[in-house]
């Protein structure tokens, strides 16, 4: 069992002990009341990009776990080829919903379908969502999309159904390199709390003021915002004879 999983089980037991390293006070003013979940926890993820091998096992595990439609992704490992001073290497950056503390996707939602649980997980009630996609526009991380099977907004939920059952998110469970570490920020002894305290991890687009709760260790500033580079070369759906609706969204 890897570090992240072991810590998670311990975290559950030791929940509610002590104060959180990071202020986890709900930013309720703009976003509306938090509902559901257990306020004793504040779930978060630390991604150690140095350990990511870019195998996309998390991408696949997420799709299987959450029945993500073809050509849509709740998480993906963005992979870059970086050439610097004549040397070329790869850079991997797992991306997912940041379950932001001050999530801009919430206040814009006209129906209240998008909301934050007391444990910080941002979810979409797809029985309420009208599919207006305002939240898709408002997320600064392109973390959301319209699921064409439900015709509602969709995104990573930290595998909320698994977390509620005391399990790890599927991507964490499957991570080969142990790069994804999940846990409770309100438990000062959890690995995520410790890493956040000791490693000074970075977040994506801090200037947006969203206060992400997905942290990155080893995040190169060149990848912190919109990446300045040559766009993706891998376009599997751009092959000929692929139906138009598939073509609209490709990886």
């Amino acid at each position: 069992m890897d570090q992240s999983r072991r810590n998670f089980c311990r975290g559950i037991g030791a929940a509610t002990v002590g104060a959180a390293t990071l202020a986890a006070t709900p930013g309720e003013a703009a976003a509306g009341p938090r509902k559901g979940g257990d306020a004793a926890h504040r779930w978060a993820m630390v991604v150690d990009v140095r350990k990511c091998v870019g195998c996309q096992a998390c991408t696949v595990a997420c799709i299987m776990e959450n029945d993500v439609p073809e050509n849509s992704f709740r998480t993906i490992v963005s992979t870059y080829e970086v050439t610097e001073q004549g040397k070329t290497g790869s850079y991997m950056l797992p991306r997912l919903c940041n379950h932001c503390e001050d999530a801009p996707c919430i206040p814009v939602c006209p129906t209240g379908a998008t909301y934050q649980r007391k444990d910080g997980i941002v979810v979409v009630d797809n029985t309420v969502c009208v599919g207006c996609a305002y939240c898709v526009q408002a997320c600064p991380y392109d973390a959301r999309f319209i699921n064409h099977e439900t015709q509602t907004a969709d995104k990573c939920t930290f595998c909320v159904h698994r977390v509620d059952a005391g399990l790890l998110p599927a991507c964490v469970e499957t991570c080969v390199g142990g790069a994804r570490i999940f846990g409770d920020l309100k438990d000062p002894d959890s690995t995520v709390s410790r890493l956040v305290r000791e490693q000074d991890p970075k977040v994506l687009k801090p200037e947006q003021g969203t206060q992400p709760r997905v942290f990155y260790i080893g995040l190169d500033p060149k990848f912190q915002g919109k990446v300045d580079g040559t766009p993706t070369l891998w376009r599997p759906s751009a092959q000929p004879h692929v139906e138009a609706h598939v073509e609209k969204e490709h990886a």
């Binding site: 992979t79 080829e81 610097e84 526009q137 070369l233």
Partner: peptide
């Protein structure tokens, strides 16, 4: 510093306001 970045794998989000 001369850095060249090529994106190899990433997601493409389709237009959501049609």
């Amino acid at each position: 510093m001369d850095t060249n970045i090529v994106e190899i794998i990433n997601v493409t989000r389709e237009v959501a306001w049609l």
